[in-house]
Amino acid sequence: MKTMSIKVLLVSTLSILPLLANAGENVASQETLQARSLVKAFGSDLKHVLKTSMKSGGPIKALEQCNIQAGPIAVKNSSSSGWNIARTSLKVRNESNAPDEWESTTLRQFEKRKAAGEQLKTMEYSETVREGDKLVYRYMKPIPTAGLCVTCHGSDVSEEITTKVKSLYPNDQATGFKVGDIRGAFTLQKRIN
């Protein structure tokens, strides 16, 4: 009788495991969908500021506005969503955007994936990690270098722009990019327990 109960328990447990695994995937999928939506909104807000500033005052005005508005835009998107939303890079312009270990590892993986032929448009990475006694869902999406980006982040940046960058970001590392390079990444995290 005891053997039969153990077998029933074992079979029941084994039949439930795939359901539990799929439940975890559904949570991750919902989190990923939410993260994608937030990246789109955050990126759109940043792009709007950049394009508007470029039209009204050229790259110098765009640099100034990016310096002033990028942080508050991230805070606005974070506070309205419950996520921590930011940008990072292996070559940061703003030191406060320096990557943590998880972000550095993910950025290096993005570079390897790009070198292997994966398209940046669909590239992303997410993972649930333990931080102390809490679980945190983390998500990153690469930011490709577009034509407009090389005006301030490229190899052939004008002296006027270089001077302005140095005045706003004395320890800037974010130059030398070519169109299609990974400029950095959106990085999001949300506590899930």
Score class of each variant (00 low, 15 high):
residue 130 R to I: 13
residue 21 A to S: 13
residue 7 K to S: 13
residue 183 R to V: 02
residue 7 K to L: 15
residue 34 Q to P: 02
residue 127 E to I: 07
residue 57 G to C: 03
residue 62 A to P: 00
residue 75 V to Y: 09
residue 135 L to E: 12
residue 190 K to C: 05
residue 88 T to V: 05
residue 163 T to P: 00
residue 36 R to V: 04
residue 51 K to W: 03
residue 134 K to C: 06
residue 49 V to P: 00
residue 126 S to G: 03
residue 180 G to F: 04
residue 122 T to E: 11
residue 157 V to L: 08
residue 85 I to H: 06
residue 29 S to R: 14
residue 187 T to Y: 07
residue 188 L to Q: 03
residue 10 L to N: 08
residue 26 N to P: 01
residue 55 K to W: 07
residue 160 E to F: 07
residue 49 V to R: 05
residue 128 T to Y: 04
residue 155 S to N: 15
residue 1 M to Y: 15
residue 4 M to V: 15
residue 157 V to Q: 03
residue 139 Y to G: 06
residue 162 T to P: 07
residue 155 S to C: 08
residue 145 T to W: 02
residue 168 L to G: 04
residue 21 A to L: 15
residue 112 K to T: 13
residue 91 K to A: 10
residue 116 A to Q: 10
residue 189 Q to Y: 09
residue 97 N to R: 02
residue 93 R to W: 04
residue 86 A to G: 12
residue 156 D to Q: 12
residue 81 S to G: 00
residue 189 Q to E: 13
residue 1 M to E: 14
residue 169 Y to H: 06
residue 158 S to L: 06
residue 145 T to Y: 00
residue 34 Q to W: 06
residue 98 A to R: 10
residue 189 Q to A: 06
residue 128 T to V: 12
residue 111 E to V: 04
residue 133 D to Y: 10
residue 48 H to K: 15
residue 11 V to N: 05
residue 115 A to T: 06
residue 73 I to T: 07
residue 152 C to E: 07
residue 75 V to N: 10
residue 130 R to W: 08
residue 58 G to N: 03
residue 164 K to C: 06
residue 52 T to D: 13
residue 163 T to C: 01
residue 32 T to Q: 13
residue 191 R to C: 09
residue 4 M to R: 15
residue 185 A to S: 09
residue 87 R to V: 07
residue 116 A to K: 08
residue 158 S to W: 06
residue 132 G to I: 05
residue 167 S to K: 10
residue 100 D to H: 02
residue 38 L to P: 06
residue 146 A to V: 13
residue 15 S to I: 13
residue 52 T to R: 09
residue 35 A to H: 04
residue 150 V to Q: 02
residue 6 I to V: 15
residue 173 Q to H: 09
residue 174 A to K: 01
residue 114 K to S: 01
residue 148 L to M: 13
residue 20 L to G: 14
residue 99 P to V: 02
residue 156 D to H: 12
residue 166 K to E: 11
residue 63 L to M: 09
residue 29 S to L: 14
residue 26 N to Q: 15
residue 104 S to P: 03
residue 141 K to R: 10
residue 105 T to R: 11
residue 183 R to Q: 07
residue 43 G to Q: 05
residue 177 F to M: 03
residue 165 V to T: 10
residue 17 L to W: 08
residue 32 T to L: 11
residue 177 F to Y: 14
residue 65 Q to L: 13
residue 158 S to I: 08
residue 42 F to H: 07
residue 86 A to Q: 10
residue 128 T to M: 11
residue 111 E to T: 07
residue 14 L to V: 10
residue 137 Y to M: 08
residue 89 S to W: 07
residue 164 K to V: 01
residue 59 P to A: 13
residue 52 T to N: 11
residue 92 V to E: 05
residue 38 L to I: 05
residue 2 K to S: 13
residue 119 Q to K: 12
residue 102 W to C: 08
residue 79 S to E: 14
residue 93 R to V: 03
residue 103 E to Y: 01
